[in-house]
């Protein structure tokens, strides 16, 4: 006797999956409505993401696309904000608005890459340490502790200095300092999920360890790490800007916010616009990710999910 055709069942299953997703989205929307600050964070990050996307697809629609690189306009040196150049011009006469907008793309991509690398490595280490336990756990966690024993920015500076100047090297340096936090977080979540009965059930069914780790533990242990990653995006952008400011990040013509402030530092306070606007952008991006990350935690972590008031700075 046949019950249903496989095709129909698979279609119905994917429909169920979409239904579940929709339900979760609807729930998120309800919570979002109650939390204007999260909404503000979402709007800021949404706008910045759209800007970054536009800069990737069509950088030529920026007001002065040639100013992204090392174009020089002697007649516009240090020109103050004006209708043509709302944010003024820098020491090479380049339009600060164009460079600040293009910097969004660099900072967002680089920040995302830092967090993604850190999250991947940390998840791998934390999952293995938590699931296998015993000596493996001890060894991996002591290595993690060793990384955490050096202040983050100092370690990042040392690594970036060793690898040499450049945006990619700064990203690697920051990812190396970032993964231990995720490793710890994922490990503790893994330990909690490991004791759930469905994991024991899978073992009794005869599932292999790798299947148990990827199918049963990872999806249930990753939530807090992803929330933290959102919060960390802001800090990663800030740290990248710090490295850039110290001359260990992006190389000069690249309009990276930190590097721009570093270059404009000499002309403060008279030519204030050259350093202020990149600084404001850093502030905006960090604020946006913090608001969003905080809101997400309230949304996804039941421990923080109480009542209507979810704002917190």
């Amino acid at each position: 006797m046949t019950y249903a055709s496989a095709k129909l069942v698979m279609k119905e299953l994917s429909r169920a999956r979409i239904r579940k997703l929709k339900m979760e989205l609807r729930y998120a929307l309800i919570l979002l409505k109650r939390s204007p600050l999260t909404l503000a964070g979402l709007i800021i990050i949404g706008t910045l993401s759209v800007i970054a996307l536009i800069c990737t697809i069509a950088p030529q629609i920026l007001p002065y696309p040639e100013d992204i690189g090392s174009a020089t306009h002697p007649e516009l040196l240090h020109c103050p904000p004006s209708p043509e150049h709302p944010f003024g011009c820098d020491y090479l006469g380049r339009d600060v608005l164009t460079r600040v907008i293009y910097g969004t793309k660099i900072s967002l991509y680089a920040g995302a890459l830092v967090v993604l690398l850190g999250l991947s490595l940390g998840t791998l280490i934390g999952l293995i340490a938590g699931y296998v336990g015993g000596i493996v756990d001890d060894v991996l966690m002591r290595i993690t502790d060793a990384f955490l024993s050096i202040p983050g920015l100092v370690l990042a500076l040392a690594i970036a200095a060793t690898l040499g100047r450049g945006l990619m090297n700064a990203i690697i340096a920051l990812a190396v300092t970032w993964w231990p936090w995720y490793a710890r977080l994922v490990r503790s979540c893994t330990l909690a999920v490991k004791n759930e009965l469905f994991v024991l059930a899978a073992r009794i069914m005869g599932a292999r360890s790798i299947v148990i780790m990827l199918k049963h533990i990872l999806p249930n242990a990753l939530g807090p790490a992803i929330i933290n990653a959102t919060l960390d995006l802001g800090f990663a952008i800030l740290a990248l800007a710090s490295l850039g400011f110290l001359g260990l990040g992006a190389t000069p013509p690249t309009p990276e916010w930190g590097a721009m402030i570093s270059e404009a530092r000499k002309y403060l306070p008279n030519m204030w616009w050259e350093a202020t606007f990149p600084g404001l952008m850093i502030f905006l991006a960090v604020l946006g990710f913090n608001l969003l990350g905080d809101g997400l935690r309230d949304l996804l972590d039941p421990k923080f999910r109480r009542g209507a008031r979810v704002w917190r700075i």
């Binding site: 069942v9 299953l13 169920a16 999956r17 759930e196 009965l197 469905f198 024991l200 059930a201 899978a202 009794i204 069914m205 005869g206 599932a207 299947v211 199918k215 049963h216 999806p219 249930n220």
Partner: peptide, 27 residues
């Protein structure tokens, strides 16, 4: 196989009932 006492912890919350029941067959 086994049936546990606590049906709240013995089913993976991220899997549909179909996938939960199909799991031993897939393994």
């Amino acid at each position: 196989s086994i049936v546990f006492q606590n049906p709240y912890s013995s089913l993976n919350p991220r899997m549909s009932v179909f996938d939960i029941v199909a799991e031993p067959l897939r393994i």
